[in-house]
Simulated scan of single mutants.
Amino acid sequence: MHKINYMYKNDTPARTPPLVDQAFAQLRRDVLNGTYSAGAKLKLDELQATYGFSSSPLREALSRLAQEGLIRADERRGFRVAAVSAEDLADITRMRVMLDVQALRESIAHGDDAWEALVVGAFHRLEKVEARLSEGPVVLDQGWTDVHTAFHMALISASPSERLRTWSASLFDQAERYRRYSARFRKTFKHKSSEHRKLMDATLRRDADTACALLEEHILSTQRNVLAVLSKVEQTPGN
């Protein structure tokens, strides 16, 4: 069984991240949150005023975001937030099905007891947060995003391929932008606890075929839900 190294908290004082990493994290968060609308131009002077960073770390942060596909770079026009479209979502979804499902299958094959505990703990935190969400209009906040991401990343964390885990995480975040976008137009929150529990249970049983089928359907259902919202937005007068 492949040995996986897990990160645990210790008493070592946390170091302040480099300015580039700070700028990247803040910009990335705001792009995912929809602070900047799809297609919006990201002007360097305005970003400097907003975040308090000099141009150098901001340019590097923007370049890294462009590599992730969250923004687009144009030598003449600068940087813009990536557009939102059914075609882009379909491409993200296709790649997620290819990579995430394989990463989960590898995780099930190689994960140890510590990995199982990580998955259970991540699901518990997600379930607690979702239980506090009302049935009325809701905007998915950063707290939900963090625990939702942590659960899905825990599932694939025992894959021995670092590249596979990294690419899956990047695609997950690109899909997250669509989830957050569509949530702004929904009247109620779509509780996913039952889906996540079934996915966790199959994973812990080491039933790779069932777990992978559930994950694929979970990814495809996200696409369907977002497409339904995109269709309604396009049909709304003024859009």
Score class of each variant (00 low, 15 high):
P18L: 10
V20T: 15
Q22I: 07
V31Q: 05
Y36C: 06
Y36L: 04
A38W: 14
E46A: 14
E46L: 14
G52A: 11
S54R: 10
S55K: 11
E60C: 07
R64V: 08
A66L: 08
Q67G: 08
I71H: 00
I71P: 02
R80Q: 14
D91P: 00
A109K: 09
D113Q: 11
D113N: 08
G121C: 01
F123E: 05
K128Y: 01
A131F: 04
S134Y: 00
G136D: 15
G136Q: 14
D141Y: 02
T145H: 05
T145G: 03
H148K: 04
F151T: 02
A154E: 00
A158Y: 00
S161I: 00
E162Q: 11
E162S: 11
S170R: 10
F172W: 09
A175L: 14
R179V: 02
S182C: 10
F189N: 06
K190E: 11
H196E: 06
L199H: 07
A202T: 08
D209G: 03
T210R: 09
L215R: 13
E216A: 15
E217Q: 15
I219F: 08
I219E: 08
R224S: 14
R224I: 06
V226S: 01
V226T: 07
V229W: 05
E234W: 06
T236W: 11
T236F: 10
P237N: 07
